[in-house]
């Protein structure tokens, strides 16, 4: 029973703390303090917190881009020691390579894995279609809109088939209309691919709309303040209905008040 439960937990963070020296002043910054969280298989977990609460530090540690000294991070039972294809990351912006076409960006992970071209092409096409970029396979990123670029980034990560997908405010840089569309698209894609996702955002509505559960962080040093479960089947989530659904609005208001407690003192 116990072993089975561990297997279903794809991402386990235990006692994670992190300090780093400030880039300019050299002063010690306590970014994360004893963070504990678990994300189960197929779950969509959102992480919300005020600016500077260490969300991005957490993501960089999980991705293996930033080494951690205190605590443990395990993905599928393996301790994280550096970047690896078991954790796919969708960055905020400017992360797809300008010198690769849409197709070659999406297939990049498979190319690195050494998958033969015909098989790769088939897999890539599947994800091109999934994110709605059919017909744009041979375009270069500079020929695409901001929203389309993020679709490419999403497809690239999915196509490499990671155990856990980490997303760092992926829709923060696109306009409000595009953001709403992308959120609904991501929800559909997450359901279709049954991916385990950790999604970082400072946008409360976004967290409540996308997440099965939402982790709320305190301000620095960031620690887990509360966990809010959103009791709304992901299949039924569309913005048009969500705004009038008490299951969504209730969770959103709860998250909002928890986050506001953290920013109130600063902003008056």
């Amino acid at each position: 029973m116990e072993g089975n439960a561990v297997m279903r937990e794809k991402l386990i963070v235990e006692g994670l703390s992190h300090h780093y020296p400030d880039e300019y002043t050299g002063m010690d910054i306590h970014a994360l303090d004893n963070v504990n969280l678990k994300v189960t298989e197929g779950e969509f977990a959102a992480v919300v917190g005020p600016s500077g609460c260490g969300k991005t530090t957490l993501l960089n540690i999980l991705a293996g881009l930033l080494p951690h000294k205190v605590g443990s991070v395990r993905v599928d039972g393996h301790e994280v020691k550096g970047p690896g294809p078991d954790r796919g990351v969708v960055f905020q912006e400017h992360a797809i390579l300008p010198w690769r076409t849409v197709e070659r960006n999406i297939g990049h992970g498979l190319e690195i894995q050494g998958l033969p071209a015909p098989e790769r092409k088939r897999r890539v096409q599947e994800f091109v279609d999934l994110v709605g970029l059919t017909g744009f396979e041979n375009r270069y990123p500079h020929e695409l809109s901001g929203g389309m670029k993020q679709r490419v980034a999403l497809a690239r990560t999915l196509c490499a088939n990671p155990v856990v997908m980490l997303m760092d405010e992926p829709f923060a840089a696109v306009d409000a209309q595009t953001r709403i569309t992308l959120q609904e698209e991501l929800n559909r894609i997450a359901i279709a691919t049954r991916k385990t996702i950790l999604f970082i955002t400072h946008n409360v509505d976004e967290a409540a709309f996308l997440g099965d559960r939402c982790f709320i962080f305190t301000r620095r040093p960031g620690k887990l303040k509360a966990t809010v479960k959103i009791n709304l089947p992901r299949e039924s989530r569309v913005w048009k209905n969500a705004v009038a659904d008490p299951a969504f609005t209730g969770a959103r208001d709860e998250i909002l008040s928890l986050v506001r407690e953290e920013v109130r003192d600063d902003d008056g």
Partner: peptide
């Protein structure tokens, strides 16, 4: 070359050689 390019290739499983040939050289072209 923006660091994010390098990070994205690393998280796709790329090694140092992939970073040099697929990020640094085309990015510096």
């Amino acid at each position: 070359v923006p660091r994010t390019y390098e990070h994205s290739v690393l998280t796709l499983g790329g090694n140092r050689w992939h970073i040099i040939s697929q990020v640094y050289i085309p990015g510096a072209l």
